[in-house]
Simulated assay, not measured.
Amino acid sequence: MTRILLIEDEPAIADTLAFALRREGFEVDWRRLARDGEAALPGAALVILDVGLPDDSGFEVLKRIRRQGEVPVLMLTARADEVDRIVGLELGADDYVVKPFSPREVVARVRAILKRTGARVATTAPATALEHDAAARRLRYRGHWLALTPSEYRVLALLASAPGRVFSRAQLLDALGEAAEDSFERVIDSHVKSVRAKLREIAPDDDPIETHRGFGYSLKDGG
């Protein structure tokens, strides 16, 4: 399913656009803030970006997106000034829509952009959601370095070493250097809970760690 990243701070507009896009078969990932939207950029086929975001200018976000790659961007603005459209297009926007607009028009523009840039999108490999810098003993999730305790780092690093593989609590305890006793296995659950909370701060709607009751934990393949 084609994933559309929608960065828009007004819930009413976002809900309307998300509904229209999902009805046409698109997957919609909605983020209200610039920093959350940029964190969710990997894997998006197209970005719908509002110019007036509460934590940053959409133009500045567009500049950073363009430094990372060529994902298509459709800009939204409440202002009809020609200079805004020119600036956005010169910075690399693929199209521009002025509010208020018809959701059907936006969907049509999204389809037109994807059709026009299809070859480019298809050849742009999405970044890995979780990256491990073993030399520096740190992990990055969706472009953000994680502030992990040594134990949290060891647990997540082991899970990341083999996505899709189920690690038992005893194996995860071995990574911590702890004895594999029942009383200590609860420690793993606590560490996993803490790691999940830190991952959720970056991507609230995603949980890349899977629980396998009676067995242990795994990192989703591709997560």
Rank of each mutant, 00 (worst) to 15 (best):
M1T: 12
M1Q: 12
M1N: 11
L6C: 05
E8D: 06
E8I: 06
A12S: 14
A14Y: 11
A14E: 07
L17V: 15
F19S: 07
L21Y: 03
L21E: 01
D29K: 05
W30G: 00
A34I: 00
R35K: 12
G37T: 02
L41Y: 05
G43L: 01
A44T: 02
A45L: 00
L46S: 08
V47A: 13
L49R: 11
D50I: 03
D56E: 15
S57W: 02
G58C: 04
G58P: 06
F59H: 11
E60R: 14
L62F: 07
Q68K: 14
G69P: 06
V73M: 02
L74E: 04
T77E: 06
A80S: 15
D81F: 12
E82F: 15
R85M: 12
L89R: 13
E90H: 12
L91P: 11
A93D: 11
Y96T: 05
V97G: 09
K99D: 04
P100G: 08
F101Q: 07
V106S: 00
V107D: 12
R109V: 09
A112C: 01
R116W: 01
G118K: 10
A119V: 07
A119I: 03
A119Q: 10
R120E: 13
R120Q: 13
T124E: 15
A125P: 09
A127I: 03
T128S: 15
D133C: 07
A136P: 02
A136C: 05
R137N: 10
R137K: 14
R140F: 08
R140L: 02
Y141E: 02
Y141C: 05
H144M: 08
T149Y: 04
P150C: 06
E152D: 11
Y153W: 14
R154F: 08
L158H: 09
A162P: 00
P163L: 02
P163S: 02
P163W: 03
F167K: 12
A179F: 05
A180V: 00
E185Y: 05
V192C: 06
A197L: 13
L199T: 09
L199G: 10
R200L: 02
A203I: 02
P204G: 10
E210D: 13
H212W: 14
S218M: 04
K220D: 01
K220L: 12
